[in-house]
Simulated assay, not measured.
Amino acid sequence: MGGNANSGIVAEQKSSEIYTYDAPWHIYSMNWSVRRDKKHRLAIASLLEQYSNRVEIVQLDDSTGDIQSDPNLSFEHTYPPTKVMFVPDRECVRPDLLATSSDFLRIWRIADDSSGVTLKSVLNANTNSEYCAPLTSFDWNDADPRRIGTSSIDTTCTIWDIEREAVDTQLIAHDKEVYDIAWGGVSVFASVSSDGSVRVFDLRDKEHSTIIYESSDPVETPLVRLGWNKQDPRYMATLIMDSPKVVVLDIRFPTLPVVELQRHQASVNAIAWAPHSSCHICTAGDDSQALIWDLSSMGTSSDSAGERPDGGLDPILAYTAGAEIDQLQWSSSQPDWVAIAFSSKLQILRV
């Protein structure tokens, strides 16, 4: 892990590798494929103000340098997908699956020969109600890929067993809408909400949750995104609605941020922890900037971690896009690649 600390320097030595794909619509959600046999493959989804939306699976052609969409792997979707995610299966032992969230959680299967995409399951937790509470986000459990956790505006989080196509657990997670969810282990997940709190849940003790952080300026300002550091699960990061600040938390010391990153000039929309390093994080927002930060100084001890609440940290790498950046994803199978989406453009950048 430590060997990647100077990745910013390496990036300058290589020809700056940036590839762009222009979608036929505004990109609302996007994500990298995880499988090792599908390098530089991503899914992108549309934001169209209508019932019918689109998902495309695109891939970089190394020989031409073009990101190309495969018409066979483009399909219609109900409402704009709030998130898309490929199955966390680097070793290719499972079917090639893609999940999307909007009105319901949907699981799609990509044919082994990439000849098409079929809808495998539509998972609806509220079968006894005509009303459907839209899903704001979901996360696929790395450690147990049968499990997907969803977050909803109806204050609940639902844990699905996608193989049984059944609800494992549904719990009222917050007092208001839940905007994001992230796994921190096989049975531990966290969520953020319009009620301004980050809460951690353990499926082995469903009666209790731990409040790790509450927004205070003003009180109950909604928290909209959550990223859990896979390389060091003591740390997570959250975004405050319409704020240029990124709050980094140490779950061992609840309520007080370990550091606040304050170099964005406008609202931050997306965060991604490095998949290969415990101390690097990327953030992106309405200032058209994608920033990579080295948080190794934030502390080996709680004392040094708490010394800089002013966010006096500067990013080690900055990239300016052509418009406000809505989406950001760091490739777990190719950790020197980051993808951003702004307006109708998808860009993949070597970092």
Rank of each mutant, 00 (worst) to 15 (best):
N6I: 07
G8V: 06
S15Y: 15
S16I: 10
E17Q: 13
D22N: 11
I27T: 01
I27E: 01
I27P: 00
S33V: 09
R35H: 13
K38A: 09
K39G: 10
D66P: 03
S69R: 06
L73A: 02
P80R: 05
D89I: 05
C92R: 09
P95D: 07
T100V: 11
R106G: 01
R109W: 02
I110L: 09
S114D: 09
T118S: 13
N124Y: 04
N124H: 07
T127L: 12
P134L: 12
L135I: 13
W140G: 04
S152C: 09
T155N: 07
T158R: 05
I159V: 15
E163S: 08
E163T: 13
R164V: 10
A166R: 10
V186R: 14
S191W: 12
V198S: 02
F201D: 00
R204V: 00
E207I: 07
H208S: 12
T210P: 01
S216H: 14
P218H: 00
P218A: 13
R225M: 05
D232M: 12
P233E: 12
R234E: 09
A237M: 07
T238L: 02
I240W: 03
D242C: 06
K245D: 13
I251A: 03
P257A: 01
V258F: 02
L261R: 02
C279H: 13
Q289E: 14
S301Q: 10
I316F: 11
T320N: 09
A323C: 03
Q327I: 09
W337E: 05
I340D: 03
F342S: 10
K345R: 13
L349E: 00
R350W: 04
